[in-house]
């Protein structure tokens, strides 16, 4: 009997596919998410929109809050640690969390190095802006990938940019002749083995979710049609007028992402979605997606 294998790490992400992972800050939110059909929750002290507003250093959440959320629901519970902060990750693993998000939403602890994730039994999900970044994280041991998008904005434009960049990267590698792969890997700054594998299979070796800006059922379905395996919703649910209704609607839109009739039905009378931010209005040093490399 072997625990912490690559198969069970990537396998849990496979079980989350076609589902919605919701940010929650307390047990009540977690129950609303579970009742709406979320396939997992992300336990946090503050949703990204509030982290963005409050400024300062954002760290791993209080373990007591995370624990209370773990007790409240039977679905998997994820939690975030800072980029490069392997001790926060060790703490989350000891807590028995189901997945760790090494996240740019928190203030990075290391500007040069991400966590070496291979040594952990608990699986990691990491953000990316393009294929090369995704492959670097997978090389370090990430068992699941998500787009970074621009968290806490309620603006889908960055998630779309990142998802298209990942998909475009895959298509390019498939069409690159074998003898050029080493040079391409060098130029991309991605591990050759990963580059070579994608050239052969035409797909990422791990599950890839969309994140960072999803605020409506149509946003979720858009990301699914662009090739996401599932969707993270951060501030989009609990910053909307009617979280329970919005949560249910986004779950249904993610399952029936190709069915415009279902999208229409679930989008009716949801009340106000979260207030969005224009990315161009955000000062460059406040952008979260540029954290990590």
């Amino acid at each position: 009997m072997e625990t912490g294998t690559w198969k069970v790490k990537t396998g849990l992400a496979q079980m989350l596919k076609g589902g919605v992972i919701m940010d929650v800050v307390n047990p009540e939110h977690a129950k609303i998410a579970e009742d709406a059909g979320a396939c997992a929750v992300m336990a946090l002290e503050r949703v990204p929109a509030d982290i963005r507003k409050d400024g300062g250093v954002a760290r791993m959440s209080d373990p007591a809050i995370i624990e209370s959320i773990m007790k409240a629901v039977s679905i998997p519970v994820m939690a975030k640690c800072r980029i490069g902060h392997f001790v926060e990750a060790q703490a989350l693993e000891a807590l028995g969390i189901d997945y760790i998000d090494e996240s740019e939403v928190l203030t990075p602890a290391d500007e040069s190095h991400h966590i070496w994730k291979q040594n952990f039994k608990v699986p990691f999900v990491c953000g990316c802006r393009d294929l090369a970044e995704a492959l670097r994280r997978i090389g370090e041991g990430a068992a699941m990938i998500r787009t970074k998008g621009e968290a806490g904005t309620g603006n889908i434009v960055e998630a779309v940019r990142h998802m298209r960049a990942v998909m475009d990267g895959i298509r390019r590698l498939v069409n690159t002749p074998q003898e050029e792969l080493m040079t391409v890997a060098k130029e991309m700054g991605a591990p050759f083995e990963q580059v070579s594998e994608i050239h052969k299979t035409g797909q990422l070796p791990v599950v890839n979710f969309a994140a960072g800006g999803v605020a409506t059922p149509a946003d979720a379905a858009l990301m699914m049609q662009l090739g996401a395996d599932g969707v993270f919703v951060g501030s989009g649910i609990f910053k909307s007028k009617n979280p329970a209704l919005m949560a249910k609607a986004i779950v249904r839109a993610t399952t029936h992402y190709q069915d415009a009739k279902v999208i229409v039905e679930v989008s009716k009378n949801l009340g106000e979605a979260m207030r969005g931010l224009d990315i161009k209005q955000i000062p460059e040093d406040e952008l979260l997606a540029t954290r990590g490399w």
């Binding site: 294998t5 396998g11 039977s74 998997p76």
Partner: peptide, 14 residues
């Protein structure tokens, strides 16, 4: 019984 073996760190191959 659901989640009968524990959380993800207890997931296993056998």
């Amino acid at each position: 019984r659901r989640n009968a073996f524990g959380r993800q760190v207890d997931s296993f191959e056998s």
